[in-house]
Amino acid sequence: MWLALLMALTMVTGSGPMDEALSATEAPKTLRAAFTVELRSDHARRVYAFDPRKTGAERWQVVDWQGEDDELEEVAANWAAEPAPDGRLFPDDLRASLGRSVEVNDEGHAWQISFRHTPSRNDGEFDVWAAQRLQATAWLDPVGERFLRIDYMLPKPVSGPEGGTLTKYNQSYFLRTEPRWGMSYVSGFSIELEARAAFRKIERRYSANIVKVDFFFASAEAQKAFEDDRTVKPQLMTGLSGPAR
């Protein structure tokens, strides 16, 4: 009885609906996205449009501008300066972040997956620091075999990586499925933090919402290769056409 209960709570990430859901987050490098994103804070709203098919300043354009918030502008500027800003829409390191096994609680409409974030090659210094202190939760639709959201929460105040005390930290990523190729993508995220340092309180709250997105492959050849590979895989899994590897 206890063994059955343990097996129900602990699951290997490379099996069942979870493996399918993780595979859907692992988009090929040749898949790109043109998108429009709305950034919001308590004081401002910004809307930007990005298209990797354009060049120069036309790749990242201001669509709407309301209010004043220097930090929100810095968030946007850092995003725009990345070599491939659309890379943020592809959570392709989620499998590495979850690790080999996770704790699963069936909530009926979704699986609640508790895990300790495992730093990956894409993580920075803060991500590594946060992985040791934040509680991580993923929500998965076991029927549709897709992730719905990923949450990170600070359970108690801790000393910050650069001094002071981090009293609150909540970060969420929301995922949707694009209809043509069935890949999962980040449709939005939110960050809320509070910290105390040098007799002052620091608060940060902002969110991003992808309001429009167009997925496409870098070339017709890349799209055909992806579609051909997706067609072949189910045949190999049956065992009728030889070993898959």
Results as ranks from 00 to 15, higher is better:
30 T>W: 04
58 E>D: 15
32 R>I: 04
167 T>L: 04
81 A>N: 07
22 L>C: 07
184 S>V: 03
178 E>W: 05
156 K>H: 09
118 T>P: 02
190 S>M: 11
190 S>W: 01
176 R>V: 05
234 P>L: 09
186 V>M: 13
131 A>S: 15
189 F>I: 01
215 F>W: 14
225 A>K: 13
102 V>G: 04
50 F>Q: 01
42 D>K: 14
71 E>L: 10
157 P>R: 08
2 W>C: 00
69 D>G: 07
60 W>F: 11
97 S>P: 00
129 W>L: 05
225 A>P: 04
206 Y>W: 15
240 L>N: 07
116 R>P: 00
119 P>T: 06
135 Q>Y: 06
199 F>A: 12
129 W>S: 00
43 H>Y: 08
182 G>L: 03
206 Y>R: 02
165 T>E: 15
167 T>M: 05
175 L>R: 10
122 N>T: 10
158 V>I: 15
98 L>I: 06
178 E>S: 03
102 V>R: 06
234 P>N: 14
145 E>Y: 04
190 S>E: 15
187 S>M: 06
216 F>K: 09
137 T>F: 10
240 L>P: 02
137 T>A: 12
89 L>V: 01
101 S>V: 08
50 F>K: 00
166 L>F: 05
101 S>M: 11
15 S>C: 11
24 A>M: 11
236 L>V: 07
10 T>F: 11
160 G>K: 02
127 D>W: 06
84 A>C: 10
198 A>Y: 08
229 D>I: 00
114 S>E: 12
86 D>R: 01
42 D>W: 11
85 P>G: 03
19 D>K: 12
141 D>Q: 07
92 D>K: 12
114 S>W: 15
126 F>M: 06
83 P>N: 08
128 V>Q: 15
44 A>E: 04
125 E>I: 00
78 N>Y: 10
12 V>A: 15
3 L>P: 07
187 S>D: 13
138 A>L: 10
128 V>I: 11
44 A>Q: 04
240 L>H: 14
186 V>R: 14
219 S>N: 12
34 A>T: 01
37 V>R: 04
154 L>H: 03
2 W>Y: 06
70 D>C: 01
184 S>D: 06
82 E>R: 15
5 L>N: 02
147 F>Y: 08
35 F>Q: 02
237 M>T: 03
55 T>P: 05
235 Q>N: 03
73 E>T: 09
86 D>N: 13
88 R>E: 12
36 T>C: 00
33 A>W: 05
222 A>H: 14
153 M>S: 05
145 E>F: 08
47 V>K: 01
18 M>I: 05
232 V>N: 04
140 L>N: 09
92 D>V: 13
198 A>T: 01
75 V>A: 11
75 V>S: 03
123 D>C: 12
87 G>K: 14
70 D>E: 15
6 L>G: 07
106 D>V: 06
100 R>P: 13
168 K>E: 13
165 T>Y: 06
148 L>F: 13
115 F>R: 09
70 D>H: 09
159 S>P: 00
68 E>M: 09
180 R>P: 00
153 M>T: 14
185 Y>G: 01
14 G>R: 12
21 A>D: 09
8 A>I: 01
7 M>C: 02
147 F>C: 09
36 T>F: 00
162 E>T: 08
156 K>N: 06
35 F>R: 03
49 A>Q: 14
67 G>W: 05
63 V>A: 09
11 M>S: 05
73 E>W: 08
45 R>A: 06
157 P>H: 04
79 W>Y: 13
171 Q>L: 08
199 F>T: 05
126 F>A: 10
